[in-house]
Design a protein around this nucleic acid. Structure first.
Lengths: 370, 370
DNA sequence: TTGTAAGCGTTATCAG
DNA sequence: CTGATAACGCTTACAA
């Protein structure tokens, strides 16, 4: 009666060691002279309700140590629905080819915070073609190996994503995202940051400020405009939509003449939205140069974001920086709370104001006339 | 008697849908009116022994499709010990996601070949600190989520690695590696490539060739020296260890005087080992310049490898290139055969000879005198 | 050709 | 405080 269980369907004799040749909790238990369940409990190391005698505890720990026991992450995940792993999914074409678009700065924060939260990371790419289904309807499915996953780019197939979200699998998108519904995300607080920039300009004495933005309805654009408008209103400046210059092609539509005209009308400061291309800021700077308007002597220019890499070595534009590492960290924090089944915290991360050298008080003459 | 099984220990009522809220094979089976095992068989899509009627097959496929069934990778791995995933482990600070990163060229090949073999990839790093054990004795353990894993860099802890290897877990190291014993690896065939370079020099008419190498006993160095010596012998040149100049600090020990002396003794060609630092090649080129020896007019120089990035735009040195992408691909192929339990193929990948512009026939006068 | 059932290694429940 | 025991979702040997 030593072997109450019937033999396995597979026909193997019950060996002292598993199929994998690696010690299982059962072996540890045998060596420690306790039940396998006890091993599990001890190894789980639950602080609360320390319901295990120090003696057994040590026996188990010793046994595990001497056997070199390591838990099987797959079994862990299957049984407990958690294995201490977080997935990071980047749906770039292959391993990211574009240096500019590298997620590196985010990943730094992601890794740090994951470690701090006691998670390990697993990176998936959506790249593989013809693989087990990486391009097919199962690309995201690999994510289920982990307790939750982070999405890094907007190329994830929405349907699959919806699937994941609907199943209640914890997913966090890095960057604001509205689809599919219910998808959690973290993003930079462009509204507050933009408002702050306007506030600073107003504090310097500027009364008329114009926002130059591209013709794009991405949340990143909309948020900046909203923040700008809030700032304008808060400062009691003449505002409304008249203060927003929206153009499809800044390079073409924003010339020196236009700029001079605005200045003549009493505008002393300009604010450009930051986009991938950096077109708005580039056009604005160029127009100012071409118009012979010195900055910050004649006019003040600010950028709602960070300067494009190719302009990085010029004089720092006043504006704000997106704390990429912090964003990554915030994403992990959010994901961790979702995994733990807790409520989601504020998804917004504050940007940091960058004083820069492109703003100053408005010129006396012009400023006062207005 | 509809429910022969006792209720779950966990106390949940057996729901129509699993804990995860996502359809399992059981649901598919119910919908298709077949057994769960049949679903598994159909979905496995085994060609051989097509022991399933086309009708059932379709029923199952339809059911699975309409339910949006996706297999659970963890369960798959647990039950079958394979889930179509290959792990890639790099013990770098962060994910080697950046093109800049030195692993990138390898990863390109890894990715392609993995796809070709029907595998998906999962990337791990050993970076995380304080994670569930990424730095601890379990960093490598995550790898067990996949069917096998690739190691990229020599920072993997040997003990853990030995563990993995001893357990019979398929591991392939990218780059030659002797420890722990039994570890599979793929590497570039430096011996053949170096021999080829010497062969070419000999064919040009060079009779005395010297190898400049650093004082390092890495296999990469040793292999090159071996290939060099083989080449020297094969060409019937005066060789032996006298032809090898081994120095700890090439910059310092390899000056223009030294070079001139060798040339005076009849040496017409020099071969430098490639290392991380590129010190040997750098020193050699500089010494030649300083000595006023024109290359390839006065002497021929060759490099056993590729030029360091900062010299990449200069004139191409004669030598060979390491086919990084192919190395990555070969690693995946090897790993796949290990996973399949087959025998390992040749671990060496051939390098490609690069003609370059730093070699030519030896100068008439000197060559003939010697 | 299909269904039955064991078991992969772990967690978690519940009775002793 | 400990030990059976069910279950996680799947694969697979074997019986029907």
């Amino acid at each position: 009666m030593d072997e109450p269980r019937k033999r396995a369907g597979r026909g193997r004799a019950p060996a002292a060691v598993g199929r994998t040749g690696r010690p299982r909790q059962a072996e540890v238990a045998r060596l420690a002279g306790v039940s396998q369940a006890t091993v599990s409990l001890v190894l789980a190391g639950k602080k609360q309700g320390a319901a295990i005698s120090e003696e057994t505890r040590q026996k188990v720990l010793d046994a595990a140590g001497s056997l070199g026991y390591v838990p099987d992450p797959a079994a862990r995940r299957l049984a407990a629905a958690r294995n201490g792993l977080l997935g990071v999914f980047s749906f770039t074409a292959t391993f990211p080819t574009d240096v500019q678009h590298s997620y590196y700065p985010f990943l730094v924060g992601v890794e740090q915070e994951a470690a701090a939260q006691g998670y390990d990371l697993v990176l998936f790419t959506g790249s593989s073609r013809g693989g087990a289904g990486a391009t097919g309807p199962q690309a995201l499915n690999r994510a289920r190996l982990a307790d939750g996953c982070l999405l890094l780019g907007r190329h994830a197939p929405v349907d699959e994503l919806r699937r994941l979200v609907d199943d209640g699998f914890p997913v966090v998108h890095l960057g604001r995202r509205d689809e599919p519904e219910g998808l959690a995300w973290v993003g930079a607080d462009y509204v507050s940051a933009s408002r702050e920039v306007v506030h600073r300009l107003a504090a310097l004495g500027h009364r008329r400020i114009i926002l130059v933005r591209e013709d794009d309805d991405a949340p990143a654009s909309t948020d900046r405009e909203q923040g700008f408008l809030e700032g304008v209103e808060a400062a009691g400046l003449p505002g409304g939509h008249a203060a927003v210059f929206r153009c499809a092609d800044p390079e073409r539509e924003l010339g020196p003449e236009r700029l001079r005209q605005w200045v003549a009308e009493g505008v002393t400061a300009f604010v450009a939205e930051e986009t991938d291309s950096g077109a708005a800021w580039r056009a604005l700077s160029k127009a100012a140069r071409d118009a012979g308007l010195h900055c910050p002597g004649d006019i003040s220019l600010a950028l709602l974001g960070s300067p494009p890499p190719d302009l990085a070595d010029g004089p720092q534009p006043t504006g704000f920086d997106i704390p990429r590492a912090q964003l990554g960290a915030a994403a992990v924090r959010l994901l961790a709370t979702l995994v733990a089944g807790e409520d989601a915290p504020d998804p917004l991360v504050a940007c940091t104001f960058r004083p820069g050298a492109s703003t100053g008080p408005p010129p006396k003459a012009l400023g006062d006339i207005a």
